[in-house]
Each structure stands twice: as C-alpha cells, then as structure tokens.
Amino acid sequence: MDKQAVDYFKKTAPEKLKLARRNAVVAAGMAWADTAKEITRDDNHIDTSLYVNSIGYVTDIPPTNKSGKPGRQATQADVIYEITEEQDRTVLAIGSGVEYAAVLEGRYNIFARALDTAQDRMQKVAQIQIQTTLFGGTR
C-alpha cells in the first residue's frame, strides 16, 4: 500500500488497518507453510507425515511411512504459530515444533527454500487480504 493510503486509514480506521495487516501476515504465512509442506513431500525428506502436518498449521495429510505403519497425527502442540502485534508491526513466528524439525532444516533448508519459492504468492495473497479488508473486495 502506498503511504497516502496508510496515512488515511491510520486517521480514519486504525483498527481496520491493523486487521488488514494481520490478515495479510496470516495469509502470507499460510502460503509459506503450504510451500514448505509441498517441498517436504515432493523431495521425500521424511518417512512419516507428522512433520508435514505440523508446519504452520495442523493438516491431515495421510502418513507416508515407508514401512506401511500409520504414524502419529500432528496436534496443535506440534505447530509453531505465534502472532504478536504492536502499533505498527505484526510478526508471525511459524514453523514446525516436532523435535527433528531443526535437523531437517539444517540438512535440507526446507523453510528457507519455501520462503524463496513462495515470495510472489505470499505477496499476492497478502495484497488480496489488504484490499479485501480495507476496501471490501479485490482491485
């Protein structure tokens, strides 16, 4: 958004501007998480679906355990999703809280690659959320 629009909404509807920012950050985080899940599955980096199902938000992707045994299903406790808001800033810490997530990231750079891959989509979904929240639709 350009500075003039931001200044206008700061004066006329600051809560709406804050909600638009939050919605944009949440949407961008979801796009990033989806891409990280896709990279993990496509590159066959894991033996179970617990890790994939714990990235950013809980999903129910069927187990990929090569032994054919069902794995443990992800719960909210396995997910990293912490959003904090300040006056002019919204921060989302997002990822996987499973014990081996850091090892997988160190070995395969899944989150970093997902961030690089998802940049355009993240910006697009964030912009859509801003427009929808502030103007009631896309432009």
Rank of each mutant, 00 (worst) to 15 (best):
A33E: 07
I128C: 11
R21W: 06
A93T: 11
D78Q: 04
Q87I: 15
I130F: 10
R107A: 06
T90M: 13
D78L: 07
S49T: 03
G137E: 10
L17T: 03
A77I: 05
M1V: 11
A112P: 00
A126D: 06
F9Q: 07
K10L: 15
G106I: 01
S54G: 11
E105M: 04
D42K: 08
N44I: 09
A93P: 01
G136E: 13
G95S: 06
Y57L: 09
V79Y: 05
T59H: 02
A5P: 07
V52A: 01
H45R: 07
T84A: 11
G71M: 03
F9T: 03
T12R: 15
R21M: 11
A74S: 05
D60V: 10
I61H: 04
E86C: 06
K11C: 10
A20I: 07
T40V: 02
Y108V: 05
I46C: 01
L19W: 04
N65Y: 10
R107S: 09
A20E: 04
Q129F: 00
D88I: 00
A102F: 11
A36C: 10
V58E: 01
I130G: 04
R22F: 15
I83G: 09
Y100G: 10
E99G: 13
E85W: 13
E82F: 07
A93G: 02
D43A: 12
D88H: 07
T133R: 11
D88F: 08
T48W: 08
F135S: 01
N109V: 09
Y81E: 10
I130W: 01
N65A: 00
T35I: 08
A112D: 12
A126C: 12
R21K: 14
T75H: 04
I55K: 03
F9W: 06
L104A: 08
I94V: 13
I46P: 02
T132P: 08
E85M: 15
A101F: 06
D34K: 04
A24H: 03
D78K: 07
A33P: 01
G95E: 02
E85Y: 12
V58T: 08
Q131A: 02
N44K: 13
L115Q: 11
I110N: 05
N44R: 12
A74C: 02
G106D: 09
A31D: 06
